[in-house]
Write a protein that binds this DNA or RNA. Structure first.
Length: 274
DNA sequence: AGGACGACCAGGACGC
DNA sequence: TGCGTCCTGGTCGTCC
């Protein structure tokens, strides 16, 4: 379930290891994960090139090489991106990068085959170009933030829309709305300025705290070294249906929005009239 | 055009 | 026990 904190944790682990390394070989075991490219093109654009940066935009992990090509990796829901000894094989390895003068390989391991790799020329190319506000970018300011509320959609669905704001997934959206005491079903336009401001402040705050705890491991998330995150211990209501609300003791409810679970405290997150 | 919904994938948890 | 059904996650294509 990598959301922004999990992706950032992976990037934090990979960057010091891979920056400056030259790609020696790319092994594509599952072509279906390549979206707008082919193994041949990947080889042509990346092999022999030095990695200049490992970074993150939204939930995409970006490997930039000298000369400008960018491999944009998205893990979707179950994927891992692991640094492994070159002779180690995992059950669901799909794509591996090997490097010159380096005894490890970078492996996309993805049970459900939902991960993707795009090859881009610039960070403005799709699928990055249409991403919304990133909570850690320079564009993340109050003026820009207010603009995303211009819709009748439920606030939870809006915050999950990566074209509006990018990085949040189901877990952190639930947590952030709870901390801001906003009903997830409230029409976005009806969220008061005061609550918008709370959200504006809380989104980077909650994500930062999660990054400091190396992300959330509920099922199979692992960082690039195979380590679990710790933020699951700090979740206030995600996955806690029927348990008491940590603020008021009311039983936490679970409802469905857009086909997936929303957790809420019906007391703390009553529909706002403020 | 915005928004709702199903598809994608695979395995685990559940009910009968 | 074994089978069927539902659920999970993020995004995209398709439809209205």
């Amino acid at each position: 379930m990598p959301e922004l904190p999990e992706v950032q944790t992976i990037v934090n682990g990979l960057k010091p290891e891979l920056q400056g390394k030259s790609i020696k070989q790319i092994e594509v075991l599952d072509v279906d994960l390549l979206r707008n490219t082919t193994p041949q093109e990947l080889n042509k654009k990346l092999v022999g090139k030095q990695i200049t940066d490992v970074s993150r935009t939204g939930k995409y992990i970006l490997l930039e090489v000298a000369g400008g090509s960018i491999a944009a990796i998205h893990l979707r829901m179950s994927g891992k991106l692991l640094l492994l000894e070159t002779d180690v094989n995992t059950n669901y390895q799909r794509i591996s990068f090997y490097f010159k003068d380096y005894e490890k390989k970078l492996t996309m391991d993805n049970l459900r085959r939902l991960g993707t790799l795009d090859l881009l020329k610039t960070k403005r190319d799709e699928p990055l170009g249409s991403l919304g506000l990133d909570p850690f970018s320079n564009e993340y300011n109050w003026e820009n933030f207010q603009r995303i509320f211009d819709t009748s959609r439920a606030i939870k669905l809006l915050l999950l829309d990566q074209k509006k704001i990018t990085g949040l997934g189901n877990i952190y959206v639930n947590e952030v709305l709870f901390k801001a005491q906003i009903s997830p079903t409230s029409p976005s336009q009806k969220v008061s300025k005061q609550k918008q401001k709370k959200l504006f402040r809380l989104i980077p705050e909650v994500l930062t705290e999660a990054i400091e705890n190396n992300g959330t491991t509920l099922n199979d998330y692992r960082d690039s070294l195979g380590e679990e995150g710790n933020f699951q211990d700090s979740l206030l209501l995600y996955g806690k249906e029927g348990k008491p609300c940590p603020y008021c003791g009311t039983k936490i409810m679970r409802i469905k929005q857009g086909g997936r679970s929303t957790y809420l405290c019906p007391n703390c997150q009553a529909n706002d009239n403020d």
